[in-house]
Design a protein around this nucleic acid. Structure first.
Lengths: 182, 182
DNA sequence: TATATATATATCGTTTTGATATATCTATTT
DNA sequence: AAATAGATATATCAAAACGATATATATATA
């Protein structure tokens, strides 16, 4: 595991539950996780390769029955230890990049209709994403007896709560801009 | 301006109002903007250098009165056009990285006290940041007659609304984890 | 059968991050 | 007056992330 490479921890977290290929890992990240973290082949494969070299994960040839071979990765004890150590460190960096707010902040360079367009576009995407998150929540509510699912459920409700706050703000912002001259 | 370099737009947005040095730009970004976008010397100086080469900004020697010279940057018409073009493009990427949620998602690898620690740490920082944002809001409320300030105000209220949603979620999450076995 | 889509691994150029190096100016302390 | 700490100012570097693309096989569909 590299010193400051966060993707390593994402991968170890996923491998803690099951063996996965690099492609599987990408799919997992693109699911429910994508609302709060992202990954690309460009960092997943180099991470797997380095972690394998350093003994945090190991390769398990999948039973391919004559088909094209694929590489399943399995977490080692060293990998589990690294994951747990990270979970137990207090600090956690939450880095937010809202291009929407950046545009709004510089809105004075154009007329208010431009800013309103920006907010409306944001609002539409938030509504769409919120619907997806509510779908996840509904599925998870049925299986909350399993401990892992409580953790998944909490991340989903975090998304729902913040997205609903976004929508309320959109309403207020549109009203305020609407009442402004220019 | 580079093809996909977002820091270019941040700099152009700031220079639209006033001439600034690279150091000034860093300070501006570290202020109210840092809640939704970040920048470092490592991308600010290369961006300024490239944009100067390509005619988006130009150097203005500051009146230093014998003191050490500093480089003030001034936005050109080409730079203003690029800023406005960006403001008028519909899509805006909001990339959120919550290490807090990442740890929570993988919480099943440790016991629930670890997850609770994670949430409590997050809660404390949100409270501190929220106080700063409320201070900004108070200052801005006095000067809302100026159009630019309305835009700044909206980005600040976005922060306040979402941070308050975070805190409500923290309360619910702690309660839910508290009632869970393990 | 043709073809579009999904699976799977890998790499590359660009951009960002975070730290550090260097030097000057200004305010404070001794 | 001298020492020093902190702010100002520019710049660079290694490491990491991003986004796109290349390559090839497997599977579903028209």
């Amino acid at each position: 595991m590299a010193k400051d490479r966060k993707i390593d921890l994402v991968i170890l977290g996923l491998l803690f539950h099951e063996d996965l290929t690099g492609y599987d890992i990408k799919k997992r990240i693109d699911g429910a996780i994508s609302f709060f973290w992202k990954g690309s082949f460009g960092n997943i494969y180099p991470s797997l390769s380095d972690m394998e070299k350093n003994g945090f994960v190991e390769k398990r040839r999948a039973e391919t029955k004559g088909r094209r071979e694929k590489i399943l990765y399995h977490i080692t004890e060293k990998g589990s230890d690294a994951l747990k150590e990270w979970l137990n460190t207090e600090q956690a960096a939450n880095d937010l990049k809202y291009e929407t707010l950046l545009k709004l902040y510089f809105g004075g360079a154009e007329d208010k209709s431009t800013a309103l367009e920006n907010i409306r576009y944001f609002e539409e995407r938030v509504k769409a994403d919120l619907a997806v998150l509510k779908g996840y929540r509904e599925s998870l509510e049925k299986v909350l007896d399993r401990q892992d699912h409580v953790y998944y459920y909490l991340t989903v409700t975090f998304g729902i709560d913040t997205y609903e706050a976004y929508l309320k703000w959109c309403g207020k912002a549109k009203k305020m801009l609407g009442g402004m001259k220019g």
